[in-house]
Every structure is written in C-alpha cells, then in structure tokens.
Simulated assay, not measured.
Amino acid sequence: MLELRNINTYYGRIQVLHDICLHVEQGEIITLIGANGAGKSTILMSISGIVPPRDGEILFNDISIARMPPDKIVALGLSQVPEGRHIFPELTVAENLDMGAFLRKDREKIRQDLDYVYTLFPILAERRHQPGGNLSGGEQQMLALSRALMTRPQLLLLDEPSMGLAPLVTQQIFDIIAQINQEDNTTIFLVEQNANLALKTADRGYVLENGRIIMHDRAERLLGNKDIQKAYLGI
C-alpha cells in the first residue's frame, strides 16, 4: 500500500532523514520506534506532504505522492493524527469532526461514520457540543483520532498517540487502534515512544536511529531482541 524509496528529507540545510526505505502492506499495523529526535515524526510529515522529501520516492497505492500537496494526499485515503493532537480548541467536538469530513461529498456515509466514531468513543457523543479545548488530554486524543477517521482513510498515520496520557487511557486508545484495524481493515502506521506497547500492537516494526533505518523485523522478534530490549524497553 505504501512504499518509501531512498527518502532524504531536510530542514533547511540540515539533513534529518537518510535514504529511508520501508513499506506498509494493506491491512497490517506497522510501528516505527526510536529515540527522541531520531526523525520519526519527520517520516510521517514527509509521507503526508507537510515536509516534502528533497529526493526519493513515496508511492501510495502505486501513485507517487512525494511532491503532492497534503490535501490531495488526504483525498487519496491517507490521513495523519499529529503529535500533540492539534484539534481546533474553539470549535465544538461536532465541528472538529465536520472538519475531518471537509473534503467529502458523500453525506449519507459521513453520517454513518459520525455514528461510528461516537460508538467508538461515547464520551465524544456526550460532549459533542462542548469546545474541543475543554476536553481532557485523553478526550482530545480520541477527538483527533476520530477527526482523522472522518476522512475515511485507507491508511492512518498515528504520531505518538500515548503522549501525555495516563496508562489506563493509553491502553484504551491502543485497544481502539487495534479494533479499527481489525474491524475496518484500516492499515495503521504507528509512531510511538512506548516501544513495548507499540511492538505488542504491531505486526512489524522498524527501528530508526539518527535518521536511518537500522533494523526491520516482525514485531515479536524485535520484542525478543536483546539490543532492542536494552535500548528501548528498559530490560
């Protein structure tokens, strides 16, 4: 579904990503782990068109998207939940969800998807008329995820969904991520600082170090890797 071929991304003159190659198959969950500052979020922003790569190729369903505007990428079926949520704090929950469906014209399916996200997160249905800025951190993460689902994505990019959340809320969010993947066959690309939880959720994993992919394997094999345990799992 998604393939990155030798992606090099810069901030000004500073190169952040070096010859990144990875792929995502339809229906799977992959995770990207690495230390803070390794370039994990930059990979997602390069895919989304927010920070386009200087060179290399990104293919989404065999369509080249490396130099495509972000709104066109969303329209193809690829949506990102950014680090820090970035909801619209002054808009209500319902209005935030409407923004997720901004590019869509299929009004009946939009209503169905709205019912679906309210089923996933009943607290959002209860608070649909409240400003997003009044929600707790966990509820804002639920709203950011739901807003992305309103684009009806084929591939969902998640950037640090557990950031700043209590362990119980984090587990709830990850349970929903797995449910979305299994029930809707939505493909998930997960960037997550909690490497243990990420690898237990994913099918495959990539390890990023200083802007370079240094390892790739099945998630369970990475969990059992002594170097990964020492560097990222605190074992």
Results as ranks from 00 to 15, higher is better:
Q141A: 04
H18R: 12
I123D: 09
D98N: 14
L76D: 11
L91R: 07
I235W: 15
R13C: 11
T119S: 10
N96P: 08
L135S: 04
G205C: 05
T187H: 15
T187A: 13
P131G: 00
T9D: 02
I173M: 04
M142I: 00
L222Q: 06
C21N: 15
D62T: 07
I176T: 11
N96G: 00
Q80R: 15
V51G: 06
L78T: 02
Q26L: 12
M163E: 11
N8R: 04
E220D: 14
E183F: 09
E108T: 03
I228F: 10
G100T: 00
A198E: 07
L32D: 04
F102I: 02
I180R: 15
A178W: 11
G137F: 13
I50L: 12
A144T: 05
G39T: 00
I110P: 03
L158Q: 03
Y11A: 07
H129D: 15
A219W: 15
G224H: 11
E183T: 13
R5G: 10
V93P: 07
S41K: 11
R67P: 06
L145Y: 06
Y118W: 07
M163Q: 12
Q140N: 01
L17G: 14
L76N: 06
Q26V: 07
S79A: 15
V51M: 11
P82R: 14
L78N: 11
S48T: 03
L76P: 07
I65T: 05
S48R: 07
L149E: 04
T151P: 00
E139M: 02
K109H: 11
D203I: 01
L22G: 09
A38V: 05
D227N: 14
L158R: 08
A202F: 02
A178N: 11
G100N: 00
I228H: 05
E95I: 00
R152I: 06
G34I: 00
Q229I: 14
V24Q: 11
M163D: 02
I213R: 07
G133N: 04
I63F: 09
E160R: 08
Q171N: 15
G211F: 02
G27W: 15
I33N: 10
A166M: 12
D227T: 12
I14V: 14
L157A: 01
K40M: 08
G224L: 12
I235F: 15
A66H: 09
A148Y: 06
G205P: 01
L156M: 02
R147C: 01
V117P: 10
A198P: 01
Q154W: 15
I14T: 12
T31G: 04
